[in-house]
Measured scan of single mutants.
Amino acid sequence: TFELKGKVGKVVKIAEDHYLVEVEGDKWIAYSDEKLSLGDRVMVVDVDGLKLKAKRIP
Rank of each mutant, 00 (worst) to 15 (best):
G39T: 07
R41D: 14
A30Q: 01
D26A: 12
I14G: 03
I29W: 10
P58G: 11
I29Y: 14
I14F: 08
V8C: 12
V12F: 09
A30F: 01
V44C: 04
L38V: 13
Y31F: 11
Y31P: 01
D17H: 10
S37V: 13
I14M: 10
E34Y: 05
S37T: 13
D48L: 08
E16D: 13
K5Q: 15
R41T: 14
L4K: 06
Y31A: 09
E16V: 12
V47H: 08
K10H: 11
L36N: 01
K10L: 13
K55A: 14
P58T: 11
G39L: 10
E16P: 12
R41P: 14
I29A: 10
H18I: 11
P58K: 06
V11Y: 00
E16K: 13
P58H: 12
K7R: 05
V47I: 08
Y19T: 05
G25S: 08
I14A: 11
D33M: 07
V47F: 12
S37E: 13
E34V: 05
F2P: 15
L52Q: 01
K35I: 13
E34S: 07
V21Q: 00
S32L: 03
V45A: 05
D33F: 06
K51T: 13
V44R: 00
G9L: 07
A54T: 15
L36H: 02
K35R: 14
K27L: 09
I57C: 15
D40E: 07
K27F: 09
L20G: 04
E24A: 08
A54I: 15
K5D: 15
L20M: 11
E22P: 00
V23C: 05
A30T: 12
V12H: 05
D17A: 10
M43T: 08
K53W: 10
L4G: 12
A15Q: 12
D33A: 08
M43Y: 06
L20W: 13
R41K: 12
D26E: 11
E3H: 05
K10Y: 11
L4P: 15
L38Q: 08
A54Q: 00
D40L: 04
K5E: 15
L20P: 00
W28Q: 02
S32T: 04
L50V: 10
E34P: 02
P58M: 09
V45K: 02
E22R: 07
E34T: 06
D40V: 05
K7H: 05
L4R: 02
K5R: 06
E16R: 12
W28C: 03
V11S: 00
A15F: 13
E16M: 13
K13A: 12
A30H: 01
L50N: 13
A54C: 15
S32K: 04
D26K: 12
S37H: 13
H18C: 10
K51R: 12
L4D: 08
L52P: 02
V45W: 03
K55S: 08
K53H: 10
V8M: 11
I57G: 02
K10N: 12
D46G: 06
D26G: 14
V8A: 08
I57K: 04
I57W: 12
E24Q: 07
K13C: 10
K10G: 08
V44D: 00
V12L: 13
V8N: 07
E3L: 04
L36K: 00
V11T: 05
V47L: 05
A54M: 14
K35Q: 13
E16T: 09
V21H: 00
E3V: 02
V23M: 06
V11P: 00
D26V: 13
V12T: 09
K7Q: 07
G25H: 09
R56S: 06
K51F: 07
G39V: 03
G25N: 09
H18T: 09
K53Y: 10
R41Q: 14
T1G: 15
F2D: 15
L38M: 10
K51Y: 05
I29V: 12
K10P: 04
D17Y: 09
R56D: 01
K55I: 09
E24I: 09
V12Y: 08
D33H: 07
G49M: 04
V42Q: 00
D46V: 03
D48P: 02
L4C: 09
V44W: 02
W28E: 02
L20Y: 12
V8T: 14
L36G: 00
G6L: 02
V45N: 03
V45L: 06
I14Q: 08
Y31E: 12
I57S: 05
H18D: 10
V12M: 10
V23F: 05
D33Y: 07
G49N: 07
M43D: 05
E24T: 05
K55D: 09
D46W: 02
V11A: 02
G6Y: 02
G25L: 06
K35G: 10
T1H: 15
A15I: 14
V47M: 08
L50H: 12
T1K: 15
S37Q: 12
L4W: 03
E3Y: 06
L52H: 01
G25M: 08
V8Q: 11
D33S: 07
M43V: 14
L52D: 00
R56A: 06
K27R: 11
D46A: 06
V8S: 10
G9D: 00
K13W: 12
K27I: 09
W28V: 02
G49I: 03
D48M: 09
K51I: 13
I57V: 12
K7A: 07
I29G: 07
V21F: 02
G49A: 05
K55W: 03
K7T: 03
G25D: 08
K13D: 11
W28K: 02
G39P: 01
M43E: 15
S32M: 04
G9Q: 00
K7F: 03
L50I: 10
V47W: 09
S32A: 15
D33I: 08
D48R: 04
V42E: 00
D33E: 10
L52I: 15
I14P: 01
W28M: 03
E24V: 08
I29S: 12
D46Y: 04
A54E: 00
Y31Q: 11
R56W: 10
V12E: 05
W28T: 02
V12N: 04
Y31N: 11
A15V: 15
V45Y: 03
G49V: 04
V45D: 05
L4I: 14
K53G: 03
T1V: 15
Y31D: 10
R56H: 06
G49Y: 03
K7P: 02
G6M: 02
K55V: 11
K13E: 12
L20I: 12
F2A: 15
L50T: 09
V12C: 09
K10V: 12
E22L: 12
E3Q: 04
L52E: 00
D48N: 09
V11H: 00
G6N: 04
L52M: 04
V23H: 02
E24W: 05
R56T: 05
D46F: 03
A30W: 01
L20H: 14
V21I: 15
V23T: 03
D26S: 14
Y31W: 14
D17T: 12
V42T: 02
E22F: 10
K53Q: 06
V42H: 00
L52R: 01
G9W: 01
L52C: 03
A15N: 13
D46R: 03
T1R: 15
F2R: 05
K10Q: 13
G9S: 01
P58Q: 11
V12P: 00
D40R: 01
E24P: 01
G6P: 01
K5G: 09
R41C: 15
L38R: 07
V23I: 15
K51N: 09
G39D: 14
T1N: 15
E16L: 12
I57P: 03
G25P: 02
M43I: 13
S37C: 13
D40S: 05
F2W: 13
V23W: 02
V23K: 01
G39E: 12
D17S: 11
K35M: 12
A54Y: 01
D26N: 14
D17V: 09
K13G: 10
W28Y: 14
K27G: 08
E24D: 08
G39N: 13
V47D: 04
L36F: 05
K35V: 13
A54F: 06
V45E: 08
V8P: 05
E3P: 15
K5H: 13
K27N: 09
A15L: 14
V21S: 00
L50R: 09
K13P: 00
G6V: 01
K27Y: 08
E22N: 08
I57N: 04
D40K: 01
L52N: 01
